[in-house]
Design a protein around this nucleic acid. Structure first.
Lengths: 176, 176
DNA sequence: TCCAAAGTGAACCTGAGGTTCCGCTTCCAC
DNA sequence: GTGGAAGCGGAACCTCAGGTTCACTTTGGA
């Protein structure tokens, strides 16, 4: 692969990730290309269609999340800490896209499996935090995950957004 | 106006409101008509275009919210209670639509004014609740309103949704 | 019974966005 | 330096969803 081609491929992926985080999965191929400083044709040289670009980013994003969540569950001092860490990681990733992907029927069973296993890790963190008395018990892990996705998939959200602080405070169970 | 015409007009408005609450402002004219059990042509007999249907519902919705908020501010025992009441009212209204309207340049300055005055009432409730020590003080009324809109504009949200409970708990300031 | 008002939905129109394609440019092995 | 394969650009094309129209049928009510 020629050196400029490799560089451009990275430019495209970077621009796409930024746009997906910023505006959600609505970003058009045109926008992505322009934001990378390239023409649409170039984009299509590297990714045969929109779907494949989506899949590439989703796969990468999910893989990172999975690895992070696993590590965090192993090392965090408590379930609550693991949970908070995972949420922060989610926010930093173009996950809105993963959601978009999961809304379209996807031909990559690999991704589905990965998403499922990530969900299981999140549920594990929630359950642990609930057992340790740090997270309210009137919600199922699935409900918590749903809420999480509302926050995390919000276009333009950034780590440290007050919405996250409020949300976490609302989930936290404090000794009365 | 013929009796069937009046009845159908009401059917259309009802169906549109339901769909807007359910699926957000993405509902198409076709869907609205079918859901009302009528043809598109009938819809267009009553509302010359989509915009005017939107405006009619938005105006009504905003007017209710405004009236409710004002009454609530006058009678609620505390700023916090007023705030909670207003949020619940928002959720019951097709407000997602109001947001959609505010995203399109709108030729109805009447609506803009109403929206502005409603915002002011909400800000008033927030400020009062903050002064009374019931609502966290590290957020401006505008920030609270932004969060509110995230929750309220979520398609399919219903009064009593756990998301609202968690959100309110996160906003509440409890004596340490 | 009559007809203006109202209803109907297939057809039309438009715009947004994905995709293609071909002439031009750039890299790089020789 | 040069040839040419690899890469780039972006206008043009295609498709599809959804708003809108309209010629025709049905209906309320006098």
């Amino acid at each position: 692969m020629r050196s400029d081609a490799r560089r451009n491929r990275d430019l495209i992926l970077g621009a796409a990730v930024d746009l997906f985080i910023e505006r959600g999965p609505a970003a058009s191929m045109e926008e992505i290309a322009r934001s990378a400083g390239l023409g649409v044709g170039t984009l299509y040289r590297h990714f045969p269609d929109r779907q494949s670009l989506l899949e590439e980013i989703a796969a990468d994003s999910l893989r990172r999340l999975y690895d992070y969540a696993q590590a965090r569950l192993d090392t965090a001092p408590s379930g609550w800490d693991a949970f908070v860490g995972i949420i922060e990681q989610c926010v930093a990733l173009p996950l809105a896209l993963t959601k978009a992907v999961s809304e379209t029927p996807l031909d990559k069973p690999e991704l589905d499996a990965l998403a499922e296993r990530s969900d299981a890790l999140i549920a594990e963190a929630v359950t642990r935090a609930q057992k340790q008395g740090d997270l309210r018990r009137d919600l199922s892990p699935a409900q918590v995950a749903d809420m999480l996705s509302v926050i995390v998939c919000r276009p333009g959200i950034r780590p440290g957004d007050p919405l996250i602080t409020v949300f976490l405070d609302g989930l936290r169970l404090r000794p009365a």
